[in-house]
Amino acid sequence: MSLVSMTPATAGIYNQTVFNEMINEINNVKNEVEFRSLVTKLQAMSAPSFLAFIAFEHTTPTSVECKLYGNPPSAINQLLLSEEIHEYCHNESSPISLSQFGSLYPQHLYLLPVHAGHNEHGAFLLQIQDPHDVEHLCWYWSSIATYLIHAYIKLAKQRLVAITKRERDCLLWACEGKTSWEISQILGVSERTVNFHLSNCIEKTNSSNRLQAIAKCVVTNII
């Protein structure tokens, strides 16, 4: 059964079969168009509780790209992508009422941070009318969140620069503080070849030097 045909009234958002089908669809998302469509389906089948998914993607050690999937109230779209929201989602894992970030946020909207590894995090925006339901609903959505963020990470990696295996090997040893000569001895190639691979990495990542290339590759999980 497709997610688009499911509603709490017909299938039950907490039904195990519905949950398994949901996870299967998440795992089979192949591109960002499908991902965006999937979030819309999740929103439709779970209305009114689930409103949006926020993805935070590090592009450099100091730069974060925020993307919003779903249809939250238009009046708070930009507020959801604020630095304050990102800081909370980066550092915390407990659900929080958006009203705690200011009076512009409705009290019945909650933010559920999602973490899935190094520099990989996002958040769910949930609409919960009764505060007594917060723990239960967030527990349910946190089980889905891990799958959703991993699906997003998989798609994000498809957009990364094409670093070859040999370039990656050179970067990994450079991360360990090895010089080009030391890397050449470890990999059994010439020092000139190592410098060639590292220069390619610098160019591919639009970096100024190998240290910046390493930093970019670390935060984007290339290495």
Rank of each mutant, 00 (worst) to 15 (best):
M1N: 09
S5W: 09
M6T: 02
A11Q: 07
G12H: 07
I13G: 04
Y14S: 12
T17Q: 13
I23Y: 03
E25W: 02
E25F: 05
N28L: 08
R36F: 02
R36E: 15
T40Y: 04
Q43P: 06
A44P: 00
A44I: 06
S49C: 11
F50W: 07
A52D: 08
H58V: 00
P61S: 13
T62E: 12
S63K: 14
K67P: 02
Y69D: 01
I76S: 08
L80N: 11
E83M: 09
E84N: 10
E87S: 14
E87C: 05
Y88I: 03
H90M: 14
S94L: 15
P95L: 12
S97N: 11
S99Q: 12
Q100K: 15
Y105A: 03
P106W: 06
Q107H: 11
L109D: 10
L109T: 12
L111F: 10
A116G: 12
G117P: 07
H121W: 14
H121M: 08
Q127A: 13
Q129N: 11
D130N: 15
D133Y: 10
V134E: 02
V134A: 06
E135P: 02
L137T: 10
C138H: 13
C138Y: 11
S142M: 11
T146R: 10
Y147Q: 03
K154H: 13
Q158W: 00
T164A: 04
K165M: 03
A174I: 01
A174D: 03
C175L: 13
E176V: 05
G177E: 00
S184M: 03
I186A: 00
V189R: 00
V189S: 01
E191H: 08
E191C: 06
R192L: 07
V194H: 02
H197M: 12
N200I: 02
E203L: 13
S208R: 07
N209Y: 05
K216Q: 06
V219P: 08
T220V: 01
I223N: 04
